[in-house]
């Protein structure tokens, strides 16, 4: 059942959840990216225990549902009286920070795999060439490895951004008033779908913006591929069936 008597007020009400949703996604993506670079380097470390630790972290966060991770951090921490009386409690007390922590830890695991893939795609010959030019390790990372790895990782990271925007909806299960919870409150008290459909549209719009943004960044970061892509987009010259 849908009712169309007050769609505008409902839309504005749900729009009120956008700041929480977007800030949660943005903050955890930024924090998660920084941590993920470290984690990816750890996984590629020649020192086995470090690489293994990073692997275990990635394995845990990718093999369990985000919902479990969120509940563990939110409801789970409430079980310990010691924690409740410690300096850390003002942090864990808030659903917002718990959600951000869970989302950050989660995206760190996925992003580190994307970055690792990017790093491994950089041809070894280039690293050797950089060494031969006398670049030190930091300079090699900064000037040769990272720029290419990031470009390589960007499409995968675009997916991760969309997934994170979607994942913020789980914060609704720990009382955080974001888009999903506002919509759900309306749906469960009126037995109508309007609020949920509006919420779905808002998420689609945010994700549309995010994917456009990533596509633009991809375009900006790969000038040497641009020409080839334009050629590809041109009408078929009649040779494309030849493999």
């Amino acid at each position: 059942m849908l009712r169309f008597d007050e769609p505008w007020t409902l839309f504005l009400e749900i729009l009120g959840g956008v700041p929480n949703t977007v800030s949660l996604a943005l903050a955890s993506l930024v924090l998660g990216f920084v941590l993920a670079v470290g984690l990816a380097l750890m996984r590629l470390s020649p020192w086995k225990p470090v690489a293994w630790l990073a692997y275990a972290y990635v394995y845990f966060f990718r093999s369990t549902p985000l919902l479990v991770q969120i509940f563990l951090i939110y409801y789970g921490t409430g079980q310990f009286e010691g924690l409740r009386e410690s300096w850390a409690w003002p942090f864990f007390r808030e659903a917002y920070w718990c959600a951000m922590l869970a989302l950050t830890l989660n995206t760190t695991a996925y992003t580190s795999e994307i970055i690792r893939g990017g790093l491994q795609a950089v041809p070894w010959g280039q690293v050797e060439a950089a060494k031969a030019c006398g670049m030190n390790a930091i300079l090699r990372l900064r000037r040769v490895i990272f720029p290419q790895a990031i470009r390589q990782a960007l499409p995968g990271y675009g997916n991760e951004i969309v997934l994170m925007v979607k994942s913020t909806s789980l914060a609704s299960t720990i009382t955080l008033l974001e888009i999903t919870l506002i919509a759900r409150k309306d749906a469960s008290s009126t037995y109508t779908l309007d609020a949920l459909v509006i919420a779905a549209a808002i998420y689609l719009f945010i994700n549309l913006l995010a994917t456009r943004g990533v596509a633009w960044l991809e375009y900006r970061l790969s000038p040497e591929l641009r020409e080839a892509r334009i050629l590809k987009a041109l009408p078929d010259p009649g040779l494309s069936h030849v493999h």
Partner: peptide, 18 residues
């Protein structure tokens, strides 16, 4: 005002002092 899916979850947070 904090809203909960179930009364059980609310009870947990009441115990935890949230």
């Amino acid at each position: 005002v904090k809203t909960y899916d179930t009364q059980e979850n609310l009870d947990l947070d009441l115990q935890a002092g949230r």
